[in-house]
Design a protein around this nucleic acid. Structure first.
Lengths: 223, 223, 223, 223
DNA sequence: GATGAATGAGGCTTCATTCAT
DNA sequence: GATGAATGAAGCCTCATTCAT
């Protein structure tokens, strides 16, 4: 609109501080939502509870910063994914082999429970309570499905490269996803939960299950 | 469901017909609840929707027959367990070996999706939306945990008997539970889903993962 | 559903009393809404105010009987139209000439203010605050427009039959509608308002304006 | 809107530039409000929407320049009246006869829809949604009523001067007002609306209705 | 003087539950 | 025992307004 002079640079600090304030509030609310969802579940994670957790005076505040509950939930999932990606991707990509990446994927995923104990449980809650026909969540669920598809594809590639044995890659992808979610939901509640050990165990499990030489006749010997 | 004996006919008149009618109504409502929960999810499974599905004209009917929503949900889970037990237990007990029982457990569980497509998804929805601190659900969640404990124990026994390899039995129990739930939730939605093939694949997977000789150094070769 | 025996006829009293009760409540709420809308205007006619006027304990009661605010408003307009039709149509159809019907239309419309002082103001409020793009009101506004179209058509027929002079029938229909609404909104507030006299005056006005012989050069003599 | 004199340029620097800026901002907001009200109606004309229309980043801006929503609405009506007066008054006063002035009043009023399509619809919306008991609107509605009174008075004078026939001047004033509002609200929405032709038709109508010689027995021939 | 984040009242709606009949 | 109308708490959301910066 208006030509910007060099004097405006000071405004930039104020200007972006506004944006910063906004972003900070949103982050604060998203953080509170993650806590509340993980603690009381998706159904009972009301704006009232989230506002109280965030130290806000009213639920109007949340509606002020988010277009609606769906929008907030989207941000919750996006934030968890951002954190998870930042933690997991480097560890996965550092591995040269398919089973190394599989192990890194599982272990780093479970290890996240150590640093961010509420993040994964929250996202499991949210994704478990969303229907793909909820209109506003359509794209979101599609992203979810495509993630499983991606894993399925990677598994198939490893099979074709001779790194994995023969099995249905889709069922395997689903099983890995489900097993991780199960551990996230159930195991994380016990007081002396050890993410590193548990992640290693789970990774061992699926490395065994995907090994090339291991399962030649595994499925047939006892039927 | 059950063949009616001549003795029942007398009941119809006045005597314990209340009880029979009562039981029929409860079963009808529980069945409707299972359908609705599987279709729209726990959150949107309101009394109104369930009543409509059951062909009832008011929600008062449900409150009349159940102490509350928790009570209904308890019955839903109990009913699914009753059906699942009836289907699975004979198949499991027919197996002489631990891995045979493991396979039978997984396969029969997934196969249930063929005969009762809504039962398992419904129970996964309910159990995923219940907190152990919900007062009235305390005992219920305890039962759930004890089920995983039972599996953990059985796995440990198989290990001690030399039938299974060495791994953390609790993580394995959790992984099996989670993988089945994941398949139930996700795979059951695809149109050409084949419960038998999928169950076999999943069973293969965990049979491989639990095999004694398979995983000697599985966990160490790529770290 | 169930075969009805003669004994059921007693139920009919109860049965239809249920329906009757329902209808009575709806009528009560619609009546309260008409009162409130006429008194405080469409914008401030909230469920809270309407519930209070109807002697109801909560706004939930209204939502219980009506699908939403739109639904209630539709009923309000429908009710007023029902009353207006019952009063006006016989009086209009009793007239053999076009100008007789025009007069009867206007006079009976205004006279309604005597018997139902809130009905017409309420409907003017509602129709003035509805947009045709409000989705749920689409059909409704279409009905409104078609009413003006009907009047336009009747006027044109009277012109072709030689009963009315020459003028744009659509503008005339709009003017009649607007003039009545104006009187309804403004004049009805004065304490000594005389509906009969006012109706006659307004009818005189439009009978003059539509007369065949009257306006040959009316529009040209002063420009 | 207004040509800026050289004197204004100095104002821009520091002096009364506040006042000028202030006035400009108010005019900008009032203009945006007129647009929004005409487009979405009074009820949905929120500060948020008006601010967006005005290119403002926050609603605080509006509250800053206006004492409240009532104040803004007052300004909206005042602005429309200012424009309408500037357009209509010269045209009316140029006419020597009462019916000439009546025609000029109606025609120029409708013609305004050509030059300022949103102004009249906006003011009809506002005035239709204001109650005289809204405290702060008291004086405002009084001004409205006095305007109708003025017209009533002018009509009576024309009658006494023998220029108009005999009829209730108040009902006539109300009918003219209502007919214009009806046309403004309804006709202005059709795509091929011709303000000049429509204004002439409406003026013809009321000139006929007020003619001295026309209606001697108009009201009696069909009752 | 201007900004935009924060507020809190109030709106509509849904829901499980209760109660008179 | 069964019905369905009534209830009231709670949820999400919108809005005009205020206030610190």
């Amino acid at each position: 609109m208006r030509a910007r002079s060099s004097a405006d640079k000071q405004d930039d600090q104020k200007g972006s501080s506004r944006t910063f304030t906004e972003a900070a509030r949103r982050a604060q609310i998203v953080g509170a939502a993650i806590e509340v969802i993980a603690e009381v579940g998706y159904t009972k994670a009301t704006f009232t509870r989230i506002a109280k957790q965030a130290g806000l005076s009213s639920t109007g505040m949340i509606s002020y910063h988010f277009a609606g509950k769906d929008d907030l939930m989207r941000e919750v999932v996006a934030e968890v994914f951002r954190v998870a990606d930042g933690y997991m991707v480097p560890r996965i990509e550092a591995q040269p082999t398919a089973s190394g990446r599989l192990r890194a994927f599982i272990e780093s995923n479970i290890e996240l429970l150590g640093e961010f104990p509420k993040h994964l449980p929250a996202v499991v809650e949210v994704l478990g309570n969303i229907r793909s026909d909820d209109s506003s969540m359509r794209e979101f669920c599609a992203a979810m499905d495509s993630l499983v598809d991606t894993h399925t594809h990677l598994i198939r590639e490893a099979q074709e490269a001779g790194e994995f044995g023969e099995f249905d890659p889709r069922v395997m992808a689903l099983a890995i996803r489900g097993a991780i979610d199960g551990v996230v939901t159930r195991a994380a509640k016990v007081p002396d939960f050890d993410p590193v050990a548990c992640g290693r165990e789970l990774a061992d499990l699926f490395v065994r299950a995907t090994r090339k030489d291991a399962g030649k006749d595994a499925g047939k010997d006892n039927r």
